[in-house]
Write a protein that binds this DNA or RNA. Structure first.
Length: 726
DNA sequence: ATCCTGATTTTTTTT
DNA sequence: AAATCAGGAT
């Protein structure tokens, strides 16, 4: 390659890109569809295209709106663009759909009857509200689950149906009832100056549809719109893009979308593959670029991916190829149960680490969050550091939600959900009954709960003790609100909230290990607030802090620079790559999941498997168990049909000796005494099986050894087996 | 109002 | 297996 200094800087942005990538980066005005197979360098294309647009002065940073799937991806993209350009991109809009919408809504809130301090409800908040709405309408809650009710509402919103449209579409009495629930839900959430995740999109669409001046302003401001992971956009996001890009009557529609129909895995939340399939119909003047060269995986891994995805119908023709060589065969392992599976995985990880692999190079993927536990247990035993992405998130912990609810109530006195959460936490002697009286009064008067609660004496029927407690509580809240008005930093304010609310004191009084952990979590939240203050300086406001917090995805908290093995669901693995990947739990019913074994959904499961396989760069393990505990009770499982779709010659399946099954698994702590000779993770040499590593110690002097030769795992009597140290 | 206990449910996947 | 919930006792 030529010396960078001797070429035109714009040329330098194309350095090292292949033909189609260059074409996508340099393409001029008008719609552009980039069909980017897994590992084909689409992030590179996006960042270089943005840098190129700015460098060639076709766009100023402020004229670019780039949508990514996670905040973390947005941050990384900003960093890369800045590195390419050598200057700041602060004025560029680079965020997720939801964050961009929240930002727009914050500045236009009054048009929709909101204030800029509106609360963003997460799933749990929204579910609680759905339940309340259903009860208010008189739905028999023993027959319907709140989650199902909420899913209905969310589904309607994702299809851009407002309450009236939903009612018009109603087919049966159940739908009619749901329409009432939906109406009640929307009435309440609006009255509380709150929005759920779906509202962020829906309300922005409403805003742009209803106000020509607002639409014109944003259309003019975002001259170039770029969207990553376009295959996972839903109806609302699609409509939003149309509104932002315009109809093309006053200039070219500069929209770039990047995606891969084979990786569409969010149908369950309303994503519609047709958005990408029909792009050329929606934008007839579109230019299309296909990226088919994969720079990530070995040919064997790609052959597996291609073979499996070929079983899906109606995909855009596309064949991934790579010149990285054949590489290793894909390792297929069948184990007795989920514990043996976990031992096998951790045993292999230990071996890889001993051979010099970095922990950060290894990832274990699974279908459902619940599957992480067995693997975590073994990692802990094996003393291997790891991180879990997803599952119970930091921001969903009770104490964190409490602290956030305090802050929320300070800025949004109409937020009944926040008020309900904090009014008796810590305990103040204000229970269900008193709470119901207060909220009912607020609803009757149509005023903020804050105002009702601040005048405790005015609440009808409130007991004397409750009135007193409420008065004290609201005095504290008023003090805190005053502190907020004085322009205290978010971190300092949070600290004041934790102290004056009695939240910390109550935890300290518990004097348990658990409570100590909770206090630590709260301290961590204060640290997050400090970071926010430092980052935003003068701009830092409590409103902004809360709205950013609500949109943090767990994927955003992933650490890449550390010596940690990463565990996560296949969904969370989207967009990532690892030299070594394990896909666990490949059993019919687990993956594909039993609830999606019908036509359309099965294809989505297959795409999810495709996503998993294509995360692997060098080494891929597929594992499944003959027995697996579901809801605590064991059940037999068949190997996943997806495994059967993999051509046999690509797989390495070690011949399996029948292993002794009479010994129960689940080593206790007492195991060390009899198997003291061997320690967890220790290398051993077996006369017949060769080198291996101890992956578990079990009672009765039994050790479990994973052999390097054939990858098999065997239970041995430590005292009798022909074992020695290498 | 709060605490305890037994019953029921949870696990699809997420912004 | 763990978490949440409803009902009843205090």
């Amino acid at each position: 390659m030529s010396d960078l200094r001797s070429v035109e800087p714009a040329e330098a942005l194309l350095e090292g890109l292949n033909g189609p990538q260059r074409e996508a980066v340099t393409w001029g005005e008008g719609p552009l569809l980039v069909l980017a197979g897994a590992g084909s360098g689409k992030t590179r294309v996006l960042t270089h295209r943005i840098a190129h647009l700015i460098y060639t002065r076709r766009a100023r940073p402020g004229e670019i709106l780039a949508i990514t799937f996670t905040n973390k991806a947005a941050g990384e993209m900003r960093e890369r663009v800045e590195r390419l350009l050598g200057h700041s991109t602060r004025s560029m809009w680079l965020s997720t759909f939801h964050s961009a919408c929240a930002r727009i809504l914050r500045s236009e809130a009054d048009r929709l009857g909101y204030t800029r301090a509106f609360t963003i409800y997460d799933q749990a908040d929204s579910r609680r509200l759905a339940k309340r709405s259903a009860e208010a309408v008189g739905v028999d809650m023993t027959r319907y689950k709140p989650a199902a009710i909420q899913a209905r509402i969310s589904d309607a919103k994702n299809r851009l149906l407002d309450v009236d449209a939903y009612r018009r579409e109603a087919q049966d009495p159940f739908d009619e009832m749901m329409a009432d629930v939906y109406a009640s839900y929307q009435r309440q959430i609006h009255a509380m100056n709150a929005m759920d995740f779906d509202d962020l999109l829906l309300r922005t669409v409403e805003l742009l549809e209803r106000y020509d001046d607002v639409r014109a302003r944003y259309q003019a401001s975002f001259r170039y719109v770029l969207v990553d992971e376009y295959q996972d956009t839903n109806r609302a996001q699609y409509r939003l893009l149309q509104l932002l890009v315009g109809d093309g009557s006053d200039g070219p529609r500069n929209i770039t979308v990047v995606g891969d129909d084979a990786q569409s895995i969010y149908g369950f939340r309303g994503a519609d593959v047709r958005n990408i399939l029909d792009f050329e119909r929606d934008f007839p003047e579109a230019h299309v670029v296909k990226l088919e060269q994969n720079y990530r995986s070995t040919e064997t891994i790609l052959a597996v991916a291609n073979a499996v995805i070929a079983n899906n119908r109606g995909a855009i023709a596309k064949e991934l190829w790579s010149d990285l060589g054949t590489g290793e065969q894909v390792q297929l392992r069948e184990l007795d149960d989920e514990h043996a599976e976990a031992r096998m995985i951790v045993g292999e990880i230990r071996r890889l680490l001993d051979e010099g692999a970095a922990a950060a190079d290894v990832s274990v993927l699974y279908r459902t969050n619940a599957m992480s536990r067995a693997i975590e247990d073994q990692l802990v035993r094996g003393d291997i550091a790891y991180q879990v992405i997803g599952g119970t998130k930091f921001y969903e912990r009770a104490e964190i939600k409490d602290a956030i609810a305090y802050l929320t109530f300070l800025v949004n006195g109409a937020d009944v959900v926040a008020f309900s959460r904090i009014i008796n936490s810590p305990r103040r002697g204000i229970g269900q009954t008193s709470l119901a009286r207060i909220t009912a009064q607020a609803q009757t008067l149509g005023t903020d709960v804050w105002d009702v609660a601040a005048d405790a004496a005015s609440v009808p029927g409130l007991a004397a003790a409750a009135t007193k407690a409420l008065t004290r509580f609201m005095e504290t809240m008023a003090e805190l609100r005053e502190l907020a008005r004085e322009g205290l930093g978010v971190a300092e304010l949070l600290q004041a909230v934790l102290e004056r609310s009695g939240l910390i004191a109550a935890l300290e009084d518990e004097r348990t290990i658990e409570a100590e952990g909770r206090i630590e979590n709260l301290e961590q939240l204060v640290a997050v607030a400090h970071e926010f203050d430092d980052e935003h300086g003068e701009e830092a406001s409590l409103e902004l802090f809360l709205q950013e917090l609500a949109l943090v995805a767990d994927a955003d908290t992933r650490r890449s620079d550390s010596g940690l093995v990463t565990l996560m669901t296949l969904h969370n693995a989207k967009g990532l790559e690892f030299p070594v990947v394990f896909i666990a739990g490949l059993e019919d019913g687990m993956f594909p999941h039993s609830r999606s074994i019908d036509e359309g959904a099965l294809e989505e499961e297959r795409r999810l498997f495709y996503v998993g396989v294509t995360r692997a760069m060098r080494t891929l393990y597929l594992t499944h168990a003959r027995r697996r505990a579901v809801f605590g009770s064991p059940s037999v499982a068949m190997r996943s049909r997806f495994v059967d779709e993999v051509p046999a010659h690509l797989l390495d399946v070690p011949a399996r000796r029948s292993s002794p099954t009479s010994w129960s698994s689940g080593a206790g702590d007492g195991a060390q005494a009899s198997a003291a000779a061997y320690r967890l993770g220790e290398d051993v040499l077996h006369a017949a099986f060769g080198e291996g590593v101890v992956t578990a110690l079990e009672p009765g002097g039994v050790i479990v050894v994973r052999f390097a030769g054939d990858g098999s795992e065997r239970k041995l009597m430590a005292d009798y087996a022909p074992l020695s140290r290498p």
